[in-house]
């Protein structure tokens, strides 16, 4: 199958068994590992960072009230940093996924739907 005319229309249906068969494929195991490699540390990291912020807001109020300049204190800067880290992680994840994840996921997707030689 050198050409795949069906690609313009909806892809051929894949059965549940077709999907399950991919589960033990080393490329799927690799795909999963690539996803977890980013998602797990990012989740643990942002959550720890958020919990630190919450705990400091509850128990380290003197420190949070430290004035840095003018009327800007640590609490405000810490809060704004939570915004920045959220934006940053979202941006980093999109970059990572586009580079490391999407091409591989698409390869497996196409193989399941169009068969092994359909490239």
């Amino acid at each position: 199958m050198a050409t795949t005319p069906t690609r313009d229309g909806p892809p051929p249906t894949a059965t549940d068994d077709d999907l399950a068969a991919m589960y033990d494929d080393p490329r799927f195991v690799d795909l999963k590992r690539r996803l977890f490699r980013f998602v797990v540390p990012a989740t643990v990291g942002f959550f720890a960072w958020y919990v630190l912020y919450v705990l400091m807001s509850a128990y380290a109020r003197d420190f949070m009230g430290t004035v840095l300049f003018g009327n800007i204190n640590v609490a405000l800067v810490f809060g704004v940093l939570q915004f920045i880290s959220t934006f940053g992680i979202a941006w980093a994840y999109s970059r990572y996924a586009a580079r490391e994840y999407d091409p591989r996921a698409k390869e497996l997707h196409d193989e399941i739907h169009y068969g092994g030689n359909a490239r």
Binding site: P10, T13, A14, D16, D17, D18, L19, A20, M22, Y23, D24, F28, L31, K32, L35, A105, L108, H109, I112, H113
Partner: peptide, 19 residues
């Protein structure tokens, strides 16, 4: 385990997902 395999392949690759 077979259904889990189907679910995870579908969730991660998008194969078989709704168009």
């Amino acid at each position: 385990p077979d259904r889990f395999a189907t679910l995870q392949v579908r969730a991660l690759t998008g194969a078989g997902s709704e168009r």
